[in-house]
Simulated scan of single mutants.
Amino acid sequence: MEHHEERDGPLAEAVALREGGRREEARERLAGLAARWPDDPEVAYQTAWAHDVLGLEAEAVPYYERALADATGRLAPDDRRGALLGLGSTYRVLGRYEDAVALLTRAVGEFPEDGSLRAFLAMALYNTGRHHESVALLLRLLAATSEDPSVRAYRSAVEHYAEDLDATG
């Protein structure tokens, strides 16, 4: 990723403000950086996040979308994953359930090892009335990730029933 001396310092300062709890000040600074560097996916992602943590979901959407439109691959994979989760969750909060399902389905395909993406996809599926798919996805996630010994003891049964929730044996 190419770095701009004029951008990197102020971006790091704004992120530090957000992380330090000075969220509104961080949002203002990041919005200024996003206006100055509208095609910078990292600035867009950090600006989206700054809006999101303040409950400004609708205002966060265009920044998330701008970050994810990055065709140059400049957005680090972990930031891309975070932007996909942030935007999918934000679509869901805003009642844009089908958009959330579409985006999170794509995100799970891109980052299949990320359980949080699958959990948010399950919520969005639930919101679209796809309850069977939602529960099956959650059961598979539970079977794959639970450290609870009582769940682990029944992992194969849980995985089996996740594939066919109507089965009784």
Rank of each mutant, 00 (worst) to 15 (best):
R29Y: 14
T128F: 12
P41Q: 05
G73Y: 01
G169P: 12
G20Y: 01
L17F: 03
S150Q: 00
L121H: 06
A153D: 06
R152C: 07
L11V: 00
L137N: 03
V43Q: 08
H3M: 09
R92C: 10
A76Y: 04
T90R: 01
E98Q: 11
E2A: 12
A167Y: 09
A58L: 04
R92N: 15
A76E: 08
A14G: 03
A44Y: 11
T128Q: 07
A83D: 14
D79E: 14
A102I: 09
T90S: 14
M1W: 06
T128L: 09
L30V: 04
G20C: 02
D8Q: 06
A16R: 02
A50E: 05
Y154R: 00
A107G: 07
E28D: 14
G55H: 00
V15M: 01
S146M: 02
H4T: 05
G109R: 03
L142T: 13
R130C: 09
L103I: 07
G55R: 06
A14N: 01
L68C: 09
E2G: 13
T90I: 02
G115I: 04
A35W: 12
D78H: 09
G169F: 15
A100Q: 12
Y126W: 11
P62T: 01
G88S: 13
Y45A: 15
A60Q: 07
V135K: 05
D79V: 08
A12S: 15
A26E: 10
L11R: 04
E159I: 00
S156T: 14
A122H: 06
G82M: 03
D114Y: 11
G115Y: 11
A31Q: 08
E25A: 01
P10V: 03
H132E: 14
V108K: 02
R74T: 07
L138S: 11
G55F: 01
D39T: 11
R74V: 04
D114W: 03
G129K: 02
E19Q: 15
S156P: 09
L87E: 07
Y154H: 06
E113A: 10
D99V: 03
E6Y: 08
A144W: 01
Y45E: 03
L56R: 05
R22L: 10
D39A: 15
A44M: 06
L33V: 07
R66M: 05
E5C: 10
A167E: 14
D99R: 13
A122Y: 05
L121M: 04
G20P: 12
R118N: 14
V101F: 14
A119T: 14
Y161I: 01
V15K: 00
G9P: 13
S89I: 06
E19M: 08
L125M: 12
A48L: 05
R81Y: 04
R66H: 10
T72R: 07
Y126N: 14
D40W: 02
E113N: 02
G129V: 12
L17D: 07
L94H: 11
R27V: 13
A71Q: 00
M1P: 15
E5T: 05
A107L: 04
G86W: 08
V108Q: 04
E98F: 12
S89G: 15
E42G: 07
E5G: 14
E65W: 00
